[in-house]
Write a protein that binds this DNA or RNA. Structure first.
Lengths: 188, 188
DNA sequence: CGCCGTGATGGCAGTGACTGACATCAGTCT
DNA sequence: AGACTGATGTCAGTCACTGCCATCACGGCG
């Protein structure tokens, strides 16, 4: 028999999400999260750098997916097209877990500290995307501007998709937000 | 005679910037900042909500300036034009203090916590700009997308201006970044 | 003239996030 | 069997941040 229950990291993630949702991020202590997971505070900090990070374990995989999608986009695709199609490729990753994504988003928007953390994750994503564009031969500042525009598109599309304002799927929202951005950028 | 030296808030800002620059944000305690300003830790927290906020006292004025510039832009101006011209209007505000803006930016970039705080300030700016656009009759999601695009333009332009890569002034960099964004958005 | 309210500050105890050092011990390797 | 490893626990310590109460120059007011 194993010495400890398995998947302590997953139990910590689960416990943290539950508690943040129940009583809010600010009103939850790390000791409480650890207790619910049957562990101690010290162990929490061995798995996560801080109290916020426990909600963002998916970021590295998302970044990897996006970057490789940009890198494998057809040579002929324009920068904004490469970024947009990469964003669309994240559809399956989110569509399955719409409910949990929604709950997580509710928790994040309810806390300033968590919003800050989300923003820096998105900024890191933008920076990685800009790097991938540069590897495709896109010069600065076009690479950075395109990546930032892509993140803006994603933010708007993701929010609309989560709000369930209509029944379109995430890639459709992304495509539509791209169109909107192109319209406003053109000065219409 | 005054009971205390005047401008304790300003002294705290000054001391904090100096110490963050000298030994880094992480290696500076609030007690040290307060001591250099001839005050106590408790007083620091009466003036600033936390250790990061001391670097961002200019944000409300910037937001006010940008919002009123958007609101007073000519009726005929397109949304992106209204935002861009508002951003250009911040030129004088920064041009005078280029050196201190540069030092401040060095401090911010060196610390993850400070970068997070900067990002949420910019996001709050974007949200305020989107609100101003809506008051001009711009619908969602165009308002949000235009505001976010404007912030991206500003970030790129500001960084290039600070880097001193050439001798153009901030409004010129903003105008140029707008052009770049329009080019990449169009799919070129 | 003397009393009183006000506002900025200091002092102090307490909570909670996070860290470093060391101990424990089931399972594994040799 | 004995050494080794890796995940966990224990504990003390630092520091950000908060609540509460004390202090006291200043300005007004009777």
């Amino acid at each position: 028999m194993a010495r400890w229950e398995p998947d302590s990291r997953g139990r910590l993630e689960q416990a943290a999400l539950e508690l943040y949702a129940e009583r809010g991020f600010e009103n939850t202590t790390v000791a409480e999260i650890a207790a619910r997971a049957g562990l101690t505070e010290r162990t929490f900090f061995r798995h996560f750098a801080d109290k916020r990070e426990v909600l963002f374990w998916g970021a590295p995989a998302l970044e990897e997916l996006l970057v490789s999608a940009v890198e494998t986009a057809p040579e002929s695709a324009s920068p904004i097209e490469a970024i947009t199609s990469a964003l669309e490729a994240t559809g399956p990753l989110f569509e399955q877990r719409r409910d949990s994504a929604q709950q997580r988003q509710l928790v994040i928007v309810a806390s300033r500290e968590l919003r800050e953390r989300e923003l820096i994750k998105l900024a890191s994503l933008a920076s990685a995307l800009a790097g991938a564009l540069r590897r495709r031969g896109v010069a600065e500042p076009a690479a950075t501007l395109t990546a930032e525009a892509g993140i803006a598109i994603f933010r708007v599309a993701f929010a609309r998709w989560l709000s369930g304002i209509d029944s379109r799927d995430l890639p459709q929202h992304i495509r539509e937000s791209l169109g909107e951005l192109q319209t406003v950028a053109a000065g219409r």
